[in-house]
Amino acid sequence: MQLLAVEPTAVPALSRRAVERVTTALTHMDDSSGGVGADLHALMEVHAQACSLAPPDTKRLAAWLAKIRLDGPGWPDFELRDYATALGENGRAELGHIVEERAATAEADVFGSTPFEIRILREQLAEVSGDVDYYVSVVAADLRTARQFLKIVNALRDADRACEAEQWACRGLGQLGNPIEMDRLRDVYVELLLDRGAEAEALALRQQLFDEHPVQSRYFALRRTAERTDDWPGLRAEALQRLRDAVAARSAFVEELLGVLLDEHEHAEAWQVAVAHDDVVSESRWKQLIELRQPMHPADVIEPWKRLIEQRLAMTSDKYRYRRAITMLRRLSEAYRASGNDTGFQLYLADLRHRHKRKTSLLAKLDNVER
């Protein structure tokens, strides 16, 4: 970045070389942490910025970007809009020509459609053209996912064409798709309804979806919308009861209810629900509940801590189970001490040692707890 400030003309070539070398290196290494990939993304941003300040030959830049997208290993990713200025009209035309040449000879993907790499470049070229109708027509060539509908909806919304955006959103919601993507599309649809004053319609949609499947995400979505329409005070109790009824029918909804109760700061009820359904509450949720409960009610958390310790010690697939159990033992010791029952902890520890007397590595760690 310092070189960019003092000698910008040198940076496009240098950053391009760096991108190519890191891209090659990534094909031979494990980047499960994502650190190198993040660095590569940052390098692409530097390259795009440098090209905007000191544009290289537009045809060569177009050919390079096409090679990355169409012939590369799948990275680095980039947004063509970042290169729009550097490419200019001639560069964009050259890139479009390359894309269409490749499309003419490309084999269809497993769905019988144009390969993703070509489709994404077509879409990005249409986006930087500034022609919204053209962009919509290009994206609409592949409407298999809610993500495609969302691209169209956002483009129309940004162009102040809310009525058309709402129609496309409604059409997209009539399809089947990835639940996360459908939720995003639905959120935008609800926003469009609220923007045009259709509050009752927006709220009815949220209520219907929550009633069909009472989970945290839909509860929170209902709350957001009802807060916008000032209906939440009257709906909150009804929504919570819907979750309680779901738990009464199926214990699979316990985690959903607990998540909502904690978010609503109904800590006492959350504890009661967890105690009543202790066999289906996850370890992470128990820890969250215990941390809230232990300061004021230390005696209440003793048995839950014991269950978690026993469960962790039984997890033979976890090579860190002893270390994690010891951490929980220390918190159990604090709970016993705060409740005025130091003897109780010593008795439990002695019983634990007796039951696991053959596990020498565990016994050594238990010695540290007793000190």
Results as ranks from 00 to 15, higher is better:
Glu166Ile: 03
His267Glu: 12
Thr9Tyr: 04
Glu101Lys: 03
Gln124Lys: 02
His267Phe: 04
Leu292Thr: 06
Leu121Gly: 02
Val247Ile: 06
Lys357Gln: 13
Ala108Leu: 14
Ala146Leu: 00
Glu45Asp: 13
Lys365Gln: 15
Gly234Ala: 13
Ala86Gln: 06
Leu121Tyr: 01
Ala25Gly: 09
Leu243Phe: 02
His97Glu: 15
Gly91Ala: 08
Arg16Gly: 10
Asp77Leu: 11
Gln208Ile: 06
Thr105Glu: 15
Gly234Tyr: 09
Ala252Gln: 10
Val247Glu: 02
Ser333Leu: 08
Val19Pro: 07
Pro298Asp: 10
Arg17His: 14
Asp279Glu: 15
Gln49Trp: 01
Ser113Thr: 15
Asn341Ile: 07
Trp75Glu: 14
Val138Glu: 01
Ala248Tyr: 05
Ile152Ala: 00
Arg285Asp: 07
Arg206Cys: 15
Ala13Gly: 10
Glu166Gln: 10
Met182Leu: 13
Leu70Lys: 06
His213Arg: 13
Ala325Phe: 00
Ala146Ile: 01
Asp300Arg: 05
Gln346Thr: 15
Trp232Tyr: 13
Glu291Leu: 06
Met44Ala: 06
Glu269Trp: 01
Thr24Leu: 11
Val36Thr: 15
Tyr189Ser: 11
Arg242Ser: 11
Glu45Ile: 08
Asp351Tyr: 03
Arg244Asn: 07
Leu366Gly: 10
Gln124Met: 07
Arg307Ser: 14
Arg293Tyr: 09
Thr23Leu: 05
Thr27Pro: 04
Ser113His: 12
Ala364Lys: 12
Gly344Glu: 04
Lys359Gly: 03
Glu291Asp: 14
Ser333Thr: 06
Ala202Pro: 05
Leu363Met: 13
Leu192Ser: 04
His41Met: 05
Leu235Gly: 08
Arg312Glu: 15
Val301Pro: 01
Leu222Gln: 02
Gln346Ser: 13
Ile152Asp: 00
Thr316Met: 10
Arg321Pro: 11
Arg323Leu: 06
Ala221Ser: 15
Glu310Ser: 12
Val188Ile: 14
Ala155Glu: 02
Ala18Leu: 13
Val254Phe: 00
Gly344Tyr: 02
Arg161Met: 05
Arg224Cys: 15
Trp168Tyr: 12
Pro304Ala: 08
Thr9Lys: 06
Val280Arg: 04
Ala299Ile: 13
Tyr336Val: 04
Gly197Gln: 08
Asp230Leu: 08
Leu3Cys: 09
Ser339Asp: 14
Ala18His: 06
Arg119Cys: 03
Tyr320Glu: 15
Ala165Met: 09
Phe78Ile: 14
Gln207Phe: 04
Asp231His: 09
Leu192Ile: 09
Gln241Met: 10
Arg119Phe: 03
Cys163Tyr: 07
Tyr219Val: 08
Glu181Val: 02
Leu40Met: 09
Ser113Gln: 13
Thr114Ser: 07
Gln167Gly: 06
Asp278Trp: 04
Asn154Pro: 00
Thr327Val: 15
Leu209Asp: 11
Val153Phe: 01
Leu222Asp: 07
Glu370Asn: 07
Ala104Pro: 11
Ala248Asn: 14
His97Phe: 06
Thr27Gly: 08
Ser217Arg: 06
His277Trp: 01
Glu269Ile: 03
Asp279Asn: 10
Ser32Asp: 14
Asp158Gly: 05
Val301Asp: 01
Thr114His: 00
Lys59Ile: 12
Tyr336Pro: 01
Arg218Cys: 09
Thr105Met: 10
Val99Ala: 04
Glu123Phe: 00
Ile118Trp: 05
Asn368Tyr: 03
Ala350Met: 06
Leu203Trp: 02
Leu192Gly: 06
Asp39Thr: 09
Ala350Gln: 13
Leu258Trp: 00
Lys59Ala: 15
Tyr348Lys: 03
Glu303Leu: 12
Arg147Met: 08
